[in-house]
């Protein structure tokens, strides 16, 4: 063994022994690092930044005047209003559902718990088209509940309630999925401590549980909101595409695009893209401003 090592040393060129700089075991060589970073940045640039830039470039191609004209159109305004309305209903519903589901899963043991977790994930695994179709089959004119609804003059499919239902269905996992792992990890000992100190159940929830999950909750709500506003597939199936009535922003973009009204299509799309950017910036700002509080709720 030592002989072998001696051979190796004598085998080095006479130009002098190669300088070996100590390097941490997990660090890569400079070339490898450059390659990895370039790959990551190149990929993101090509597949994320470039399309995003393209949206704004296309929207402003004929100048700011044309861009703003799009929003004077009553159908576009109706689409924006509808999208905001749907999000305003779907997001709070999911907030309440997500909190209760996460609470139930993380803090109690009950029969059917794993079934509940699986059910929460279904909207992630089912194609949005199927999610929409389910509601048509349930509430449509030929559907299971169709005749009863018709008899009571209730319109669900091809109307706002259908769009809300489809959106809620598609966004169900977002808040719950953010909260469950965190709440499971946190356990119940802080809640128990609050109870031994005399706090009521509600008080414990408000002063201990909620503050401990507020960042995850906010993050879940942001994601849920982005999806609620951007959902296309499920909403497309149940909407019926009635202009000015049941067209959400994503559907409106498609209609404008199919009519070769590219500037208007990209103008509306830029609002959606802008929304995504605002969400991202809001999240980054929160993380930067409250980073220590965020870290506190994860560490220790």
């Amino acid at each position: 063994m030592s002989e072998q090592a001696a051979d190796d040393i004598s085998g080095t060129p006479a130009g002098g022994p190669r300088r070996l700089r100590p390097r941490p075991a997990v660090a890569e060589t400079a070339a490898m690092r450059a390659l990895l970073i370039a790959t990551a940045i190149g990929f993101l640039g090509l597949f994320v930044v470039l399309p995003l830039v393209a949206v704004f470039v296309e929207a402003l191609r004929r100048g700011i005047g044309h861009y703003l004209e799009t929003f004077a159109d009553p159908d576009t305004q109706a689409a924006i209003r509808l999208t905001l309305t749907v999000a305003a209903i779907a997001v709070p519903l999911n907030l309440v559902f997500g909190l209760s589901a996460a609470w139930a899963v993380a803090k109690f043991d009950f029969p059917g718990k794993s079934l509940l977790i699986t059910l929460i994930d279904i909207p992630f695994s089912v194609s949005p088209v199927v999610s929409g179709l389910v509601f048509v089959l349930l509430f449509g004119a030929q559907g299971v509940l169709g005749p009863w609804l018709a008899a009571h003059d209730l319109q669900i499919v091809f109307a706002v309630p259908g769009i809300v239902l489809a959106t809620v269905f598609v966004t169900v996992p977002y808040v719950a999925r953010e909260l469950i792992p965190l709440m499971q990890e946190q356990g119940v000992s802080e809640e128990e401590a609050a109870l031994t100190l005399g706090a009521s159940g509600l008080r414990t929830f408000l002063t201990v549980t909620l503050p401990n999950v507020k960042w995850a909750l906010l993050y879940g709500v942001l994601l849920c909101n982005a999806r609620a506003m951007g959902e296309f597939g499920a909403v497309s199936v149940v909407s019926g595409h009635v202009r000015g009535l049941t067209n959400t922003m994503p559907l409106h973009v498609e209609i404008l695009y199919n009519e070769y009204n590219f500037v208007a299509a990209f103008a509306v799309a830029s609002i959606l893209a802008g929304l995504a950017l605002v969400t991202l910036v809001a999240k980054s700002l929160l993380e930067w401003r409250y980073g220590d509080a965020l870290g506190r709720s994860r560490l220790y």
Binding site: S189, E190, A193, T196, G198, P211, N212, R296
Partner: peptide, 19 residues
Amino acid sequence: PVQARRVGFVFQSYALFKH
């Protein structure tokens, strides 16, 4: 109920309120 017992309980992992 636990709230009314007036016990001082110190938990194994302390369970201090992080926030």
